[in-house]
Simulated assay, not measured.
Amino acid sequence: MNQISTFRVSSVMPAEVNIDAVKLQTALEQLPKLFPRLYCCLIARHGHIAAEQYYNGGEPERLNDLRSATKSVLSSLIGIAVHRGDMPPPDQPILPYLEEDMPVRSVTDEGWRRLTFRHLLTMTSGLHWQTGNRLGERWIHHFHNSSSWLRFALRLPVQPERHGQFQYRSIDSHLLSVLLTRCTGIRADEYAARHLFRPLGIPQYRWGLSPDGHAAGHIGLHLTGRDMLAFGQLILNEGQCLADSMNEGAPSSTAVIPLEWIRESLQPHVTGLPAFGHYGYQWWVHQVGSHDAACAIGHGGQLIYVIPSHALTVVFASNPRVCRWRHPKRWLEEWLLPSCR
């Protein structure tokens, strides 16, 4: 994959990264028509920003609500923690880290005893939940309105017939955040500040907390468009971040996320949903045209796209307070990719 030069430098002209400027401009002109609530769209190729557009009051300093795209950032934190020895490997059971808070019926539930970190990462826990084909979660508001998100989750039974099968379930992601804290002793947002945001040069962010004081694992992260792009580029570059340098010669490289974790995260571990693709470790994986792609998705049109074959990272941020929104996959296929030479 492609080395990033840095995301703290000026943009380049499209032609410098082998993008047809006329076709790109035509593609960008379609965005306000197709996505009327769009705040920003940023496109990077070969580690340089080729387009950066803002709409509807969006601006470079705006902290965008990533909604469920938060899940993909959390997955990276889990990978960092496993690599550092702060968390056990994915196939370890989760029960020992949660048992003190669990009701007796859950502790003695064989389904809970079989749950591993990998089940949560791939949303195959089997915890009792209902989700529609467009990712609408029937009980999500009850979950959010509860006084303790952790206790709410730990009271859910594991359905034997669903264990090991994919079901989009935000509770799985939130439990990962709780487990990260149980293993490391610090909240997920604080862990991110030390081990992910600092290497990327991200000083400004916001991450919401649950009523019982955990960083939300499934929603809650707010980043600027450029910082969303920096994270996507880090994934494209298989975890390698090139530090800014004023000295002559190539800047030094830092492994922020383990290469093995990124490759494992972007594998299609389970069949997902037709409208979104297969599922990796808190990432959606599918094809854009005939090209493999990975995508972090948040409600309302918060997306971080990584398309390795084209050395592309694409970010969208939109108004999340909508009932329905349009996925940009078709726009990528019909308008953006044809502009790449």
Rank of each mutant, 00 (worst) to 15 (best):
A293F: 09
G289L: 10
M228W: 00
N56E: 12
I262C: 06
R134D: 15
L180H: 11
W283P: 01
G57M: 03
C295Q: 15
P160V: 12
D109Q: 11
A44H: 02
L154S: 03
L312E: 06
S210Y: 00
L154F: 05
W207R: 04
P96M: 06
R187F: 02
S146H: 15
P96Y: 00
N64D: 14
L34H: 05
R324Y: 12
S125Y: 01
V306R: 12
G58E: 09
T181L: 10
L95M: 15
R118F: 01
A215Q: 11
L127N: 04
Y39T: 00
Y54C: 06
T116W: 04
F276R: 01
Y191L: 14
S210V: 01
V288N: 04
S245T: 14
I140A: 13
P203I: 05
R134W: 08
V107S: 03
V256S: 06
R182N: 08
T271Q: 14
Q25N: 14
L336R: 05
L42Q: 07
L98K: 06
Y305T: 02
I297W: 13
I202S: 06
V256K: 09
E248F: 03
P90R: 01
I202L: 05
W207G: 03
D212L: 01
G201N: 08
E59R: 12
L229D: 02
L229V: 10
A294P: 02
D172K: 07
G217Q: 10
N64E: 14
Q25R: 13
S177W: 00
H278S: 15
H327K: 10
H174S: 12
Q53H: 11
I19V: 15
V104Y: 11
R37A: 11
L120Q: 10
H327P: 04
V104G: 00
V270L: 13
G277K: 07
D244H: 07
R326A: 14
P258V: 01
S72N: 10
H83T: 07
S5E: 10
P320V: 09
I202D: 09
A230C: 07
A50Q: 08
A21Q: 07
L303Q: 14
M87D: 06
D109C: 10
H119Y: 05
S252I: 09
R194F: 00
P93W: 01
P203Y: 04
G85I: 13
R138S: 13
Q159T: 04
C40I: 04
N2D: 13
H174D: 14
M123H: 04
L175P: 00
V288A: 10
L66R: 12
K329Q: 15
T70W: 12
G132I: 01
F231Q: 00
R37V: 10
V306M: 13
M228P: 00
G301P: 02
P328Q: 08
P93I: 08
Q165W: 02
H195F: 15
R182I: 03
L150G: 04
A27G: 09
I49N: 09
G300D: 02
E100I: 07
D65T: 08
G225D: 03
Q233W: 00
V288R: 05
S339D: 13
N64C: 11
A193H: 04
A250E: 13
T124A: 11
C41V: 15
R326I: 15
L312R: 09
E333V: 08
D20R: 06
M246W: 12
S10I: 07
G239Q: 01
N319L: 07
V22H: 12
V82L: 05
I304S: 05
C241E: 11
Q287K: 13
W129S: 04
P36I: 10
S72F: 09
